[in-house]
Design a protein around this nucleic acid. Structure first.
Lengths: 242, 242
DNA sequence: CGAGATTTTGAATTGGGTCAAGTTATGTGG
DNA sequence: CCACATAACTTGACCCAATTCAAAATCTCG
C-alpha cells in the first residue's frame, strides 16, 4: 500500500467532545478524560469559505474538527496557491503553527463545520501530567509528517491518473474509517482545489475523472463519486507505466 | 520569502554533544543540560551510503546529526523512490517513525557522518520534567511539517528552474547558518538525487544548472557550486512566468 | 428562472521526459 | 602514481503528457 493512502484511526464516541483523533486511540482514566474535556471549552461554527485561521495569524490553539471539513493552503507571494490538505471530522488542524507561533498556512471551511478549540499551552501542560497524551501528541505530529511525505512522493513521481487514484483511495479509506461508504461519497472540493492539491490543472483532473469513468472504474456525476472497482484504482496506483 | 527556503537556527556549541537543533535555541539550566547530555550516550560513525535506518525498522531513537549529511527517501513498491530531504549537521532525523513505531523512510549517509542517538522514551520522559524541552520537541516536529509543506508547494506549482533555484537558495541559507559560505559549496548529492527530491529527471537538473551558468547566475563545476548572483536566483523563484 | 460559477471537452502548444551518445570524474588495483 | 573501469554528468534530438486556450455544457443558488 503506497503512502499517500494514509490510515486513520477508527472513529468512535469520545466523552462529550468529539476529539476523535486526539483522544480516541489512547486509554485515559475517567479523571483524565474529564480534564481533557475541560480543556476544550470553546466550540465554534463555521460556514462554507469561512477562515478558521489565516496565514500570519498568531498561534494560540490547535483545532479538533468536530464536523464538516476544511482545506489548508499556503500562498506564494506571486498569487499561486497550493492546497496542502483536506481535513475532515476527527482530525486535528493547526500543527504547522507550533513551529513559529504564527500560522504558516490558512484553513478554509469547505462546508458547515463545528470545531473545538484546544488552547495549546493548556494542552502542553496537560500532556506533562498524562504521559499517554504526550505520546499521542507526538504521534499525531509524526503522522502529519508521514502524510506530507506521502504527498511528496505523489507530487514528485506519479502521473496524473495515478495521483487521482491515490486521492480517491485516500478519501475512500477516510470515509470508511468514519463509518461511511467507501465507494459512494460527495466531493466537498472543486476540480480546481483537487488540482492544486495534486499538482495538476483543473482540466487535467476533469479529464482523468472522465477517463476513469470511460474505463468503468468509477461513476462521476460532477461532485458525486461512486467507485465501481476499487481494485482497478489500486492497480492504477501500483503499476506506474501502464 | 517562499516557504521552501526554510530558516534554520544558527549553530553554536552546545554542551558536550552537538545537539544544535535540539538544544540550541532553548535556555536550559546547567543541571538540565547535563541530563540532556546523559541521554545521548551513543555516538556512531557512518560512511558514505551506510544506512542510519531502513524503512520498516523498529523505532527506538531519534538521531542528531553531529557531522556529515544524510538523505531520507521513501520507496514505492514498484521501485520508484522519492528523496524526501537532505539533512545536515545539527538536524534531527527520524521524526516520521514516532507515528507508528516503525521507520517509514530510510536514511542514507551521503558522506562520513557522526550521529548521536537519542532514545525516544528517555527523551519523552525528560521532556515531561523540562517544559522548555517539551515545547522545543513540538516545535521541531512542527518545523518539519512546515518544511514538507514548502516542498509540496515546490513540487505542486513550480517549474523546473524555479525548483532548482529554491533548492540552491535553501542550501545556501543552511550553509550560511552553519558559518560556512553562502555562495560557494560542494554538493553532497548527485544530479539523480537532486532530481528525485525536486520531482525532475537528472537530465532536467543538469540542463537547469547549465542554463543558470549560461545566464551568469552561478558557476557549476559538477559538484562545486558558486552562486554569482543570489538576487537573480531569488527573482527566478518569485517571478513564476518568465 | 437566470446569472455566475463550475465542469467538460476539443485542439494546439510546450516543458520536461526519454533515449542515446559523448564527456568528465572517481576510485581501484597494479 | 598511473591506467583503466565504472559511475556521474552533459548535451542533442525527438516525443508525449499535461498545460493552455477556447467554447460549450451543466450546475448552483439567490
Amino acid at each position: 500500500m503506497p503512502l499517500p493512502v494514509s490510515i486513520h484511526p477508527p472513529k468512535s464516541a469520545c466523552s462529550s467532545c468529539n476529539l476523535a483523533e486526539l483522544c480516541l486511540p489512547i486509554d485515559l482514566s475517567a479523571r483524565e478524560l474529564r480534564k481533557l474535556d475541560e480543556l476544550s471549552t470553546l466550540k465554534r461554527n463555521f460556514s462554507r469559505s469561512d477562515y478558521l485561521y489565516r496565514s500570519g495569524d498568531k498561534f494560540r490553539s490547535l483545532f479538533a474538527i468536530h464536523s464538516g471539513s476544511f482545506k489548508t493552503q499556503i500562498l506564494h507571494e506571486d498569487g499561486r496557491e497550493q492546497v496542502t490538505g483536506f481535513q475532515m471530522a476527527g482530525e486535528i488542524i493547526g500543527l504547522d503553527a507550533i513551529s513559529t507561533d504564527i500560522h504558516a498556512c490558512e484553513a478554509v471551511a469547505m462546508e458547515s463545520c463545528v470545531v473545538c478549540e484546544l488552547p495549546f499551552n493548556k494542552l502542553e501542560a496537560l500532556s506533562r501530567e498524562i504521559p499517554t497524551l504526550q505520546r499521542h501528541l507526538y504521534k499525531i505530529m509524526s503522522r502529519e509528517i508521514v502524510r506530507d511525505q506521502g504527498i511528496m512522493l505523489l507530487l514528485g513521481s506519479m502521473r496524473a491518473e495515478e495521483r487521482l487514484a491515490a486521492f480517491l483511495l485516500n478519501l475512500s479509506q477516510r470515509y470508511a474509517a468514519r463509518g461511511l461508504s467507501a465507494t459512494q461519497f460527495q466531493l466537498r472540493m472543486s476540480r480546481q482545489e483537487i488540482g492544486s492539491y495534486l499538482g495538476l490543472k483543473l482540466e487535467t483532473v476533469s479529464r482523468a475523472f472522465s477517463h476513469f469513468q470511460e474505463d468503468g472504474i468509477i461513476i462521476v456525476k460532477v461532485r458525486a463519486i461512486e467507485i465501481i472497482n476499487l481494485a482497478s484504482l489500486q492497480a492504477c496506483l501500483n503499476n506506474s507505466r501502464l
